[in-house]
Nucleic acid binder design. Structure first.
Lengths: 203, 203, 203, 203
DNA sequence: GGCTAATCGAGACGGTACGTCGCGTCTTGCC
DNA sequence: GGCAAGACGCGACGTACCGTCTCGATTAGCC
């Protein structure tokens, strides 16, 4: 985690940190993002101003912009889709459909790209995010794929890692390389069926 | 295009812009990128300093950082792989292998992520880049896919756009969501075969 | 006054302005002036650099170059000569001699000319300076002249304002229109006697 | 002189310099001064723009701003008052009255102060100006004073240089240290009579 | 209730980059 | 070779944010 002291037992002397300030800061960041003011408006100065909070109060909680954004991202994060599917194909569609709807949310896209741009310069942060948020989602997907392999509806000779990317990659490609709005209804189904059936004519 | 006056017949009064300055600026940006100083080092001020050029000379050519980066990106762009394959599968592997090697280049990754982070706030720029650089590459891929469909080795009932993303998406996913080094040899082949054969066991 | 908040009771929230920075800035300006780098070297940028201070710290205190220079000038200002003369003529000589020595100081001359050049474009500033620094000196002179009139050694039928200028004008003329070094010893006496006796032969 | 080649016999090869450009440049400077745009507007760039002339054309004629301004000043200069008075006192009043009217002209004041501010950093220029423009006027004054001494209406025991400053100094003092408008009618007469009669009551 | 100590909003601190403007020099094509 | 135009390297302009610091004022747990 990026927040300091989480879990540890602090000495608890002096005035405790204000939970209201925490909320105000994260909330201000989200508001600025939604307002579409652009990534540039996500300055520490701007966030503190919008939150009605001193800059030191922000820096007391996060060492820098990126760490704060990481927590903002986590705040946006809903629990991954719970699939209780009977049918593997339906579960896959459901997972991708969840991603598709997420990608359509304006602020999610903005944040995703912001994080992308910074993860090169801060690999530690990226690993952090990937190992918490993304891994959870991927595990869900992989579980479904392994179940499919066991049931015999998914090839067992392919690396499950690679298999997973065959499904999620096309969606990511659309979301990043095209206009945002180009994540049309039915896309999740098309991808799942395309990957399941293969690009080579059957029979 | 971002550069002003391209293609148009300018009045050509006054001292002409120095081609050497053009090269010095783009070159300085590439050098800074390769030096791994991070995206933050790509300031207009830093680039001008590294190029041994006045700031005004930079601003005379590009209205801002993003437009300059776009041209830097174009400078990095090699012509897409020329495929003259007999075999559709081999052509697909070749295209993806080209992308894989490109993604491994440090500065390409850095630039790609930089552009990503800015294209939300500057959709016009992104469209520009997509409609020139990316489209060209995609056309190559689509041509191969259409040839495959004509030859009967690629399903003809799928949208060629979607089909293309089934191939390139997984590679993009790896490049962006994982460590850079995780584009191992043989990945291109694995993806192509995986998508061609499908994830579902063949009869 | 040019400095904001002088005299008023400020809310005093946030970190108070550093008195050390005040001194550093004024000191740096004086040092640059003395170094003879010329008025052109008195850039806000140069002063801040010499003072080891951020530019914002300068601009926080003065809205611009001229206002800063005005305070630099005030910093140079010594209290006017204290005349405790028995004799009006001696007092007049003493006052003019003080001005003469002041005019010989290199940095005073430089500053005087700097202010001159700007007071046309900034009449407000000039009035400010005149009404504080110059007025005080003039009052001293006028008091002596009025005393002289009362004692009968100075004509009472002339405007004291005009009378004052008869004495100080020639000195100013020498200082501004000639080389600086041309303020020779004995000049004060010559002027005083010349004005007292008149240009027309007596008797 | 500041203009290069003046008086010398130039080789006169190639296109001769355009006299129209000369006029346009000086004229533009005067226009900017009168427009009251302030000393700051008297940039080489601004003058060239206003004159519709290339910057090189200006620099071909004058090595810098100051030298140009010196010629602008000369352009403003009217021939000194021609005194052919019967009476010395009347001649003195006439000379001072000419200066007074000159000091009232807005652009003259502006230029005077501009020159003042630069003459410290460019003593050579100042000497130049003083030795041409000012000396001429002073000679006129000194001639009158010497005539007065010969006629016995002016003291002969005083340095004529000092004597001259007793008359012109007070006027300069008023012009520089007070508001411009404070050069009231009758001032010339008051000064002349004041200096002639002296500040001490006559027996 | 008083003491201690970390927090709070506010904002100044030394820096760095922003994008603009003027400097004095240079390089075009036209005259 | 002069001319208008305008690009060149340079450096100052005044602004915004960086991350750190110093204020007086709160607000808790501890004696």
């Amino acid at each position: 985690m990026t927040r300091e002291g989480d879990g540890a037992v602090r000495a608890a002397r002096g005035r405790p940190r204000s939970a209201a300030a925490d909320r105000a800061i994260i909330g201000a960041a989200l508001r600025l993002l939604e307002r579409g003011a652009g990534v540039g408006a996500l300055s520490m100065e701007g966030i503190a101003r919008e939150a009605g909070v001193g800059k030191a109060t922000v820096y007391r909680r996060w060492p820098g912009r990126d760490e704060l954004l990481l927590d903002v991202m986590r705040a946006l994060d809903e629990p991954p889709v719970e699939v209780r599917g009977r049918c593997v194909r339906e579960d896959l569609v459901e997972i991708l459909e969840g991603l598709r709807r997420k990608g359509l949310a304006k602020r999610d896209s903005a944040l995703l790209r912001t994080m992308m741009s910074h993860f090169h310069s801060h690999p530690r942060l990226w690993r952090e995010y990937r190992d918490t948020v993304i891994r959870a989602r991927r595990e869900t997907l992989h579980a479904v794929l392994r179940r499919g392999a066991a049931e015999g509806v998914i090839r067992a000779d392919l690396d499950v890692e690679l298999l997973g990317e065959l499904f999620t990659g096309p969606l990511l490609s659309r979301a990043l390389l095209h206009e945002w709005r180009e994540l049309p209804e039915g896309l999740a189904e098309q991808i799942v069926d395309g990957v399941l059936d293969g690009a080579r004519p059957r029979g």
